[in-house]
Nucleic acid binder design. Sequence first.
DNA 1: ACCCAGGGTCATA
DNA 2: TATGACCATGGG
Length: 223
Amino acid sequence: MTAGAASGFRALLQELQRAYGPRHWWPAETPFEVMVGAVLTQNTAWQNVERAIDNLKRRGTLAPETLLALPQSELAELIRPSGYFNVKARRLRHLCSFLVDAGGETALRQRPTEELREALLDVHGIGPETADDILLYAFGRPVFVVDAYTRRLFRRLGRIAGNEGYEQLRRLVEQEIGADAAALNELHALIVHHAKAHCRVRPECAGCPLGGSCPGAGEGQPG
DNA sequence: ACCCAGGGTCATA
DNA sequence: TATGACCATGGG
């Protein structure tokens, strides 16, 4: 009754779905809001990101052109709650410049996934995880997002050693799940949800839907 | 008063 | 290739 999650990523997805139901990610109203959130959430609690995005919305600057029209100091002030506000202000500007120069979302949507991924990685401040967040949740491309939660869970499940590189883990999941954007979307969303719901620092993983197949108990690794 | 959060860049060895 | 410093706010 506890072995299902360990047998494969499809099985893990089903187990998480059964426990939590669909997640409807990403929490944003537009693709551009997804992109902004992806940058702002870098090493940052989502609650702080929400405040920053709320500031941008109330200011009417949640669009590439209007955001670029802001002085960097003002932009930094608006996103202050999300932390690293000076670097992130620069990163948002780089992102917006890229979007405008590339002809906007509509033009980008025509590009093949690998090419779009390379283009995103060329943007200063967008690394592998942020790029894949954008590809999957803003453009609906079938890529898997590897984050700290994913590494921790896979290691606990015995699926990985822990020293694998980003690309290696991404391929591992994508090859097993397949080019299924909906499944990859749900899997990442559920891993994050599961981490927040059950895998915090605690003596045992009380109420964990993965049961004995989620050996988070007594690991001492914070979440 | 700690520890950490849905990372990425840069300098150094 | 592989570490380490740095960025910075807010919650537990």
